[in-house]
Lab assay of single mutants.
Amino acid sequence: MFYPNSPQTSPQLTQIPYGQQYAMMQRQIQQPYHPFATTEPQARLYPYHYQGPIQQEQGGFITQQSTAASPQYVQMRVTPVDQSIMSGYPNQTANGSSSSSFNYNIHPQQQQQQQQQQQQLRHHAMPVGSVPLQDDRYRKQLIVNYLAPDVTSTDLHELFSRFGELDGARIIYDKQTNMSKGYGFVYFCHAEDAKEAVERMSGYEFHGKWLKVGYSTNPLNIVPSNSSPYVHAGSRGAAG
């Protein structure tokens, strides 16, 4: 039997160049792979992502010199942007860049009308829970959420009447099932009393439920100042 490094198959040491006398086997001759043993700084910083320098080929596509990437890492192929796409944008300079302001050559009167329309939209648009300043009635009506099913309009009136005089209180019921929808409205005579009720009743436990109280901004629920107070009856038909 002959071994790869046996004296019968191995040459004389004098015939082997210096430095390879003890590297006779194939696994010894093959050098191990060192990912950080390279002179390129990109490979030292990113050993798993770097795959060699990027070269520009004919046709405008950018390719990489090395083989496919590892399945664990996804390499994105980048193509140059066609400058003709950006030619339609206004205020574009000769080098292809555009300024931040756009001039669509709008007539001054049209621009003024658009600004007025935007101001009107901001004036009428009102986020949930906010209180408008032009109508004091919005500051007097509250919406009470997360009410228990057994709470009546009379219970709601008695709960909030300790903060001040009320114009009314009612629970909203479903017309088909005649069941409470879980929320109601309270109408105060003074805005200061309503503000105190919002601050003190939010998070209050009532009939096993934690109440959420806020201003009601729905104009359909506003009680006119010259109208008669609501009837605080315990029956659902009268309260709904």
Score class of each variant (00 low, 15 high):
residue 103 N to G: 08
residue 97 S to G: 14
residue 67 T to V: 11
residue 41 P to C: 14
residue 20 Q to V: 10
residue 115 Q to W: 15
residue 90 P to Y: 12
residue 82 D to E: 05
residue 66 S to L: 14
residue 16 I to M: 11
residue 226 N to F: 09
residue 135 D to C: 01
residue 24 M to L: 07
residue 76 M to L: 13
residue 181 K to G: 00
residue 56 Q to M: 15
residue 200 R to H: 12
residue 180 S to A: 13
residue 183 Y to A: 00
residue 58 Q to V: 14
residue 181 K to V: 00
residue 153 S to V: 04
residue 107 H to K: 09
residue 60 G to E: 09
residue 194 A to D: 01
residue 160 F to L: 01
residue 54 I to F: 11
residue 51 Q to M: 12
residue 69 A to R: 08
residue 63 T to M: 12
residue 204 Y to W: 06
residue 153 S to A: 04
residue 78 V to R: 05
residue 70 S to E: 04
residue 240 G to D: 05
residue 26 Q to I: 14
residue 193 D to G: 07
residue 102 F to A: 03
residue 153 S to D: 02
residue 79 T to M: 09
residue 38 T to S: 06
residue 95 N to Q: 04
residue 145 N to T: 01
residue 81 V to Y: 11
residue 65 Q to Y: 11
residue 103 N to F: 15
residue 158 E to Q: 14
residue 207 H to D: 00
residue 123 H to M: 06
residue 60 G to K: 04
residue 131 V to T: 03
residue 240 G to T: 07
residue 129 G to M: 11
residue 214 G to S: 07
residue 23 A to D: 07
residue 63 T to P: 09
residue 216 S to G: 00
residue 61 F to I: 03
residue 123 H to L: 12
residue 158 E to L: 13
residue 137 R to Y: 02
residue 152 T to L: 09
residue 103 N to P: 13
residue 237 G to D: 02
residue 100 S to N: 14
residue 138 Y to N: 02
residue 219 P to L: 00
residue 110 Q to A: 12
residue 103 N to L: 14
residue 178 N to L: 09
residue 49 H to I: 09
residue 135 D to P: 05
residue 21 Q to H: 09
residue 205 E to C: 11
residue 91 N to H: 10
residue 190 H to S: 09
residue 44 R to P: 08
residue 126 M to H: 05
residue 206 F to P: 01
residue 221 N to L: 14
residue 172 I to Y: 01
residue 93 T to Q: 10
residue 114 Q to N: 09
residue 237 G to R: 08
residue 107 H to V: 10
residue 207 H to A: 07
residue 42 Q to T: 08
residue 119 Q to H: 06
residue 161 S to C: 02
residue 8 Q to T: 08
residue 35 P to W: 15
residue 22 Y to T: 11
residue 193 D to T: 03
residue 12 Q to K: 02
residue 199 E to W: 08
residue 74 V to S: 06
residue 32 P to R: 03
residue 38 T to G: 13
residue 149 P to R: 09
residue 90 P to S: 13
residue 142 L to F: 02
residue 225 S to Q: 09
residue 221 N to V: 06
residue 186 V to T: 01
residue 96 G to Y: 08
residue 45 L to S: 06
residue 197 A to S: 04
residue 53 P to K: 02
residue 136 D to Q: 05
residue 25 M to E: 02
residue 107 H to N: 15
residue 163 F to M: 03
residue 133 L to W: 13
residue 222 I to F: 08
residue 238 A to Q: 04
residue 202 S to C: 11
residue 171 I to A: 02
residue 91 N to C: 14
residue 113 Q to Y: 12
residue 191 A to M: 12
residue 175 K to D: 00
residue 131 V to D: 07
residue 169 A to H: 01
residue 187 Y to P: 00
residue 125 A to N: 09
residue 48 Y to T: 05
residue 48 Y to K: 02
residue 61 F to S: 04
residue 168 G to P: 04
residue 70 S to P: 14
residue 81 V to T: 06
residue 202 S to K: 04
residue 9 T to M: 14
residue 135 D to H: 05
residue 222 I to A: 02
residue 85 I to N: 08
residue 176 Q to F: 13
residue 169 A to R: 06
residue 23 A to F: 15
residue 29 I to Y: 15
residue 183 Y to P: 04
residue 121 L to S: 05
residue 14 T to W: 14
residue 156 L to A: 07
residue 66 S to K: 07
residue 103 N to A: 05
residue 9 T to H: 06
residue 69 A to C: 07
residue 208 G to M: 02
residue 150 D to Y: 13
residue 214 G to E: 02
residue 80 P to T: 08
residue 34 H to F: 14
residue 208 G to R: 06
residue 146 Y to L: 00
residue 84 S to N: 14
residue 27 R to M: 15
residue 128 V to Y: 14
residue 231 V to S: 09
residue 53 P to L: 14
residue 180 S to K: 02
residue 111 Q to R: 10
residue 123 H to V: 09
residue 64 Q to D: 08
residue 62 I to N: 07
residue 100 S to W: 14
residue 240 G to M: 14
residue 127 P to F: 11
residue 195 K to V: 07
residue 101 S to L: 13
residue 55 Q to S: 09
residue 55 Q to I: 14
residue 234 G to S: 10
residue 31 Q to D: 11
residue 171 I to T: 02
residue 120 Q to H: 11
residue 85 I to T: 06
residue 104 Y to D: 02
residue 6 S to P: 10
residue 81 V to S: 08
residue 230 Y to G: 05
residue 214 G to Q: 09
residue 51 Q to F: 15
residue 122 R to F: 12
residue 164 G to M: 01
residue 141 Q to R: 00
residue 120 Q to S: 12
residue 91 N to W: 15
residue 111 Q to A: 11
residue 61 F to G: 02
residue 137 R to T: 01
residue 94 A to W: 09
residue 197 A to C: 06
residue 231 V to I: 11
residue 14 T to A: 05
residue 99 S to N: 12
residue 88 G to L: 13
residue 199 E to M: 07
residue 56 Q to E: 10
residue 177 T to P: 03
residue 87 S to H: 05
residue 130 S to I: 05
residue 98 S to T: 04
residue 179 M to P: 02
residue 221 N to T: 08
residue 177 T to M: 06
residue 22 Y to L: 04
residue 75 Q to I: 15
residue 159 L to D: 04
residue 216 S to N: 00
residue 86 M to V: 08
residue 160 F to P: 04
residue 189 C to Q: 14
residue 114 Q to V: 10
residue 167 D to F: 01
residue 142 L to V: 07
residue 202 S to W: 03
residue 240 G to F: 07
residue 199 E to S: 11
residue 57 E to D: 09
residue 187 Y to C: 01
residue 35 P to G: 11
residue 237 G to F: 06
residue 52 G to H: 11
residue 209 K to V: 00
residue 160 F to Y: 07
residue 162 R to F: 09
residue 6 S to K: 11
residue 45 L to D: 06
residue 154 T to N: 12
residue 230 Y to N: 04
residue 32 P to A: 06
residue 98 S to Q: 13
residue 132 P to E: 06
residue 144 V to I: 14
residue 235 S to P: 12
residue 74 V to K: 01
residue 115 Q to H: 08
residue 83 Q to I: 15
residue 117 Q to T: 07
residue 105 N to I: 15
residue 166 L to V: 02
residue 101 S to C: 11
residue 173 Y to R: 10
residue 181 K to L: 02
residue 229 P to F: 12
residue 62 I to K: 06
residue 234 G to W: 03
residue 5 N to Y: 15
residue 179 M to I: 06
residue 56 Q to S: 13
residue 52 G to T: 08
residue 142 L to H: 02
residue 88 G to E: 06
residue 29 I to K: 02
residue 222 I to R: 09
residue 52 G to Q: 03
residue 43 A to D: 10
residue 111 Q to I: 13
residue 87 S to L: 11
residue 124 H to I: 08
residue 37 A to Q: 14
residue 156 L to F: 03
residue 108 P to E: 12
residue 94 A to P: 12
residue 107 H to A: 09
residue 18 Y to E: 07
residue 80 P to W: 15
residue 91 N to E: 11
residue 88 G to V: 11
residue 84 S to E: 13
residue 107 H to E: 03
residue 127 P to S: 06
residue 220 L to R: 14
residue 83 Q to F: 14
residue 157 H to W: 15
residue 219 P to C: 00
residue 57 E to A: 12
residue 196 E to R: 10
residue 70 S to G: 13
residue 199 E to Y: 05
residue 30 Q to W: 02
residue 193 D to E: 05
residue 71 P to H: 09
residue 184 G to T: 03
residue 52 G to W: 14
residue 194 A to E: 01
residue 47 P to M: 14
residue 221 N to Y: 14
residue 231 V to Q: 05
residue 230 Y to T: 09
residue 96 G to M: 09
residue 68 A to S: 08
residue 93 T to G: 10
residue 230 Y to W: 07
residue 156 L to C: 04
residue 46 Y to R: 06
residue 125 A to K: 03
residue 206 F to L: 07
residue 91 N to I: 13
residue 62 I to W: 12
residue 32 P to Y: 02
residue 48 Y to L: 09
residue 217 T to G: 01
residue 92 Q to M: 15
residue 216 S to T: 03
residue 53 P to W: 15
residue 43 A to L: 14
residue 25 M to G: 02
residue 48 Y to H: 09
residue 31 Q to K: 05
residue 32 P to F: 07
residue 48 Y to C: 13
residue 42 Q to I: 12
residue 12 Q to R: 05
residue 31 Q to I: 09
residue 240 G to L: 09
residue 128 V to N: 04
residue 133 L to R: 08
residue 89 Y to K: 02
residue 210 W to K: 03
residue 95 N to C: 06
residue 92 Q to W: 13
residue 179 M to V: 10
residue 67 T to M: 12
residue 80 P to H: 10
residue 132 P to L: 10
residue 180 S to F: 07
residue 130 S to H: 07
residue 8 Q to S: 07
residue 205 E to V: 06
residue 218 N to E: 00
residue 33 Y to V: 07
residue 68 A to Q: 11
residue 130 S to T: 13
residue 71 P to L: 13
residue 199 E to T: 07
residue 172 I to V: 01
residue 138 Y to C: 09
residue 143 I to M: 01
residue 189 C to L: 09
residue 175 K to Y: 15
residue 70 S to W: 15
residue 48 Y to E: 03
residue 110 Q to L: 13
residue 24 M to Q: 03
residue 54 I to A: 06
residue 180 S to N: 03
residue 205 E to T: 11
